[in-house]
Design a protein around this nucleic acid. Structure first.
Length: 253
DNA sequence: ATGTCACAGTCCCTGTGA
């Protein structure tokens, strides 16, 4: 089974790239973030022609998450079941695996109210996942907007005092892992940066100025069957790329 | 060089978010 997470930075702007990527790579499940579409605009029919069932939690101008699956799509949940107005979380069961597509709030700045919203959002995600049934394999992927350690950042000195690297954010990710989840890309590649995001500005991609903020957390069952996990850097190249690259995990149960 | 991209509204430029 191949499951991929990809922040596409507008599915409207990225549709040709996403369609082409699906045709070549044919993942079983694709977790999308930042679709920036309403449900009405989401290309359900075009995706069905490619063999994918889809569930979308759209908002419109901002945010928006989706799950595409070739292996079934059941028990879809949207958000945390609270009053959060932002469309940042969708879950579904695909081929016996419970998957979540997460778009964690950016945080903006350490003294911005959005930063507290980010920490609260991560705490709610942990609350949701701590109660997951142990009998069901889980893959929790998305744009976490947190670089788990300094090794996940091209220049830690340049990020002192910034979001994405602060101790409370990293602690929130560790609390998530403490429920029994493993950052599978890092587990398989302890010595390679595996960056997943490069700013559009400053020629960041060409210069290797990246962060690893797109993560796949898997439980012990999935980890035991994992063959590979990697970043498709080629998807960051060429015409009209997203600023994020897809992150892949391949496993069998 | 704070050097890009995407969005909506103020609508062919500007403010906001990333």
């Amino acid at each position: 089974m191949k499951i991929v997470t990809w922040n596409v930075n507008s599915l409207t702007a990225r549709w040709a790239r996403v369609r082409g990527w699906l045709e070549v790579h044919a993942p079983d499940v694709l977790l999308l973030q930042e679709t920036k579409q309403t449900d009405v605009k989401f290309p359900f029919d075009e995706l069905a022609l490619l063999g994918y069932e889809s569930a979308h939690y759209g908002q419109g101008q901002w945010n928006g998450v989706a799950i595409l699956s070739k292996v079934g799509l059941d028990d879809v949940t949207r958000g945390f079941g609270d009053e959060d107005p932002e469309a940042r979380l969708i879950g579904a069961t695909c081929g016996g695996v419970r998957v979540y597509s997460c778009y964690v709030p950016n945080g903006r700045a350490l003294d911005n109210p959005h930063y507290q919203y980010k920490l609260q959002w991560l705490a709610k995600l942990r609350e949701l996942l701590v109660e997951r049934p142990a009998s069901t394999p889980h893959v929790v992927g998305g744009d976490f907007n947190v670089a788990p350690s300094d090794f996940d950042c091209y220049d830690p000195a340049a990020f002192v005092g910034a979001t994405h690297v602060s101790e409370p954010e990293r602690s929130a990710l560790r609390a998530l892992e403490a429920t029994g989840l493993v950052d599978v890309t890092r587990a398989l590649h302890p010595e390679e940066p595996c960056y997943s995001w490069w700013d559009y500005r400053n020629g960041a991609f060409r210069r290797g100025w990246g962060l690893r903020i797109d993560l796949l957390f898997v439980d012990a069952k999935v980890l035991a069957g994992t063959r590979a996990s990697y970043v498709d850097r080629d998807a960051r190249k060429g015409e009209k790329p997203s600023d994020h690259a897809p992150v892949v995990v391949e496993f069998s149960l």
